[in-house]
């Protein structure tokens, strides 16, 4: 083959590949812009602050207040992280520092499998086990009546969903702690637990924060599993056993009706935009933290 053709191929592919790369970077901008464009009608009608702080949700009267949905999202996400973080942290420490090699080789793929299960299956599991258990056994001790479809159920299902994500990131983070540091600590007479606590954990604080933030952003955007178990009543919950209505569920549940009222569609797109912005910022920050950890090691 003549060298001219080879060079031509090289240059041609470089151009195409570069354009595709730029295009994929542009996707983020496009998603943000597309959602903003669609939600601008409602932003012109009301101020953002009013939309976020009002609890009035009456699409037919053109009133859209997101406050109860935002609280709903925060509630399930908060519960999920409170459950998932300590458990994942302990589990990751065990796998990284204590578990024998054989057990580690079983556990890591098992946790990977957990991350592959589709959200809707988590939802079915939640409906079949968590919801009735809460409704029949836990809630009666605390409140008069709860159907079981509540914030707590959503939180538990979400916690199980974010376990694998947090654990796998933590394992990577713990791996970057230099072996010499641990050995130095052990040789000074520290016990294994002291070494874990004062060397490994201390060194991994930024990584733990990044893993938590990624867990939060996964939980806050999760749609179907939560929608199936948390009751979907737009109100401010007073206890763990009240129904909540998170933002993603709001979008998913109303997609069919929104075409009839233009402002309704705009409102739903605004909630997608809110999710996008929150998760974009969270993800970018935690990824940058993780890059720094990676480069250090």
């Amino acid at each position: 083959m003549s060298y001219k053709i080879r060079l031509l191929k090289d240059r041609l592919s470089a151009n195409i590949f570069l354009e595709l790369s730029l295009f994929s970077i542009l996707t983020v901008v496009l998603i943000g812009y597309g959602l903003y464009y669609k939600s601008s009608p409602i932003l012109q009608q009301d101020t953002l602050w009013h939309l976020l702080s009002s609890t009035e949700w009456k699409p037919f009267k053109n009133e859209f207040g997101f406050f109860s949905y935002i609280i709903g999202s925060l509630a399930v996400t908060g519960i999920a992280i409170i459950i998932a973080l300590p458990l994942s942290l302990l589990c990751a420490i065990y796998i990284a520092e204590y578990a024998p090699h054989r057990i580690r080789q079983i556990l890591v793929p098992l946790i990977d499998l957990l991350s592959g299960i589709p959200p809707v299956v988590y939802g079915v599991w939640g409906v079949l086990t968590i919801v009735p258990y809460i409704g029949d056994h836990i809630a009666p001790h605390f409140v008069d009546y709860s159907s079981g479809y509540c914030a707590l159920a959503g939180g538990i299902v979400l916690a199980v969903m974010v376990f694998p994500l947090i654990v796998s990131i933590l394992l990577e983070v713990f791996d970057t702690v230099p072996k010499e540091l641990k050995e130095a600590s052990l040789s000074l007479g520290a016990t294994e637990w002291e070494t874990t606590r004062k060397v490994v954990l201390k060194k991994s604080v930024p990584g733990i924060i990044a893993a938590t933030v990624l867990g939060i952003s996964r939980a806050i955007g999760e749609t179907l599993a939560v929608l199936m178990v948390c009751g979907n009543l737009p109100m401010i919950p007073h206890s763990l056993f009240d129904s909540v209505y998170p933002l993603p569920a709001l979008i998913a549940n109303n997609y069919g009706d929104m075409m009839s009222i233009p402002m309704y569609e705009s409102a739903l797109m605004l909630s997608a935009l809110i999710l996008f912005v929150i998760i974009f910022i969270f993800n970018a920050i935690s990824r940058l933290i993780l890059y720094r950890i990676e480069n250090r090691s």
Binding site: S21, S24, I25, T27, V28, L30, I31, G34, L35, Y37, K38, L214, S217, R218, I220, G221, E222, T223, P248, I251, A252, Y255, L268, M269, A272, L275, F276, I279, F280, F282, N283, A284, R287, L288, Y291
Partner: peptide
């Protein structure tokens, strides 16, 4: 460029599917 592209993909990886759904719907209508 390489670093920005990696960051972009890492961030896009975290964007929930409902946002993709809403965006896809926007394109579809467009």
């Amino acid at each position: 460029l390489a670093n920005i592209t990696r960051l972009t993909f890492d961030v896009l990886f975290g964007i929930p599917s409902i946002v993709y759904g809403a965006f896809g719907f926007t394109i579809m209508v467009y």
